[in-house]
Amino acid sequence: MSTPATSFTDHYNFAYLDEQTKRMIRRAILKGIAIPGYQVPFAAREMPMPYGWGTGGVQVTAAVIGHSDTLKMIDQGSDDTTNAVALRNFFVQTTGVNTTTHTKGASLIQTRHRIPEEPLSEDQVLVYQVPIPEPLRFLEPRETETRKMHALEEYGLMHVKLYEDIARFGHIATTYAYPVLVNERYVMDPSPIPKFDNPKMHRMEALQLFGAGREKRIYAIPPHTDVVSLDFEDHPFTPQEFDQPCAICGAEHVYLDEVILDDQGSRMFVCSDSDYCEERRTEGHTGHLGTNPLDAPSNGTAKDNASSKEACK
């Protein structure tokens, strides 16, 4: 999709990182794969983008990526969010690899906060950017303590927290970064994806890699691995559901963004996965607001009001 100019390669190594750093990261990735869900400490380097903006994901991608890869970079499900654009440009400049927005055409996908709607296949790798890799961090801020809890498989605190939610609200009040149990052993933070995406991790065909740069951790889920969202028998895990399809492509059972259309409270719900939405529209699907409500505002607003009220219920 792009023909990159790679003048950066005169000054920097392929994929920016030096080979010693890549080896160190690669070793951590292999350990992560061998111990699914366990956070492998690694000597994250200082990267030319801020901590918290994807330095971990970028380091993992840089250690994995090769000439023949086709890279897709998404943030919030979309290829065109500003940080996705910035990170994609980073790899175009430092590697010259091909990029794509099509989920199916990518061999390597780096994401922040979403898993694509299109099921991933065996020959794909999904790299997550992770801000806080420790699922127990908000219950116990000390690394020395949480490390012990993982070692002893002592996850009572997490269950107590979830159960307190149930006692207070009648259900578990965690909507994203919803903790999962991997391969029946490690409780893992799935990164701040909405819990809607959690079931996609379970026995996914693609390899999933997670990089947390500031916190210096790498972890992994091999293909076909059990990933179970924590819950209770009487309060089973329930992913979020939307009571309407995408307003512009009509897709159901997908994660939707709420878009505010005016200051009268009109809003619409559209696919968060922009590639999925575009593909569907290319195939001829339309939603109840047509394919582009902003082109015909007069005709969209009335309907919108109706739909937003419905959605609010």
Partner: peptide
């Protein structure tokens, strides 16, 4: 950075 996916949840 955009957080609208989590905010939506």
């Amino acid at each position: 950075l955009p957080h609208y996916v989590d905010f939506q949840a």
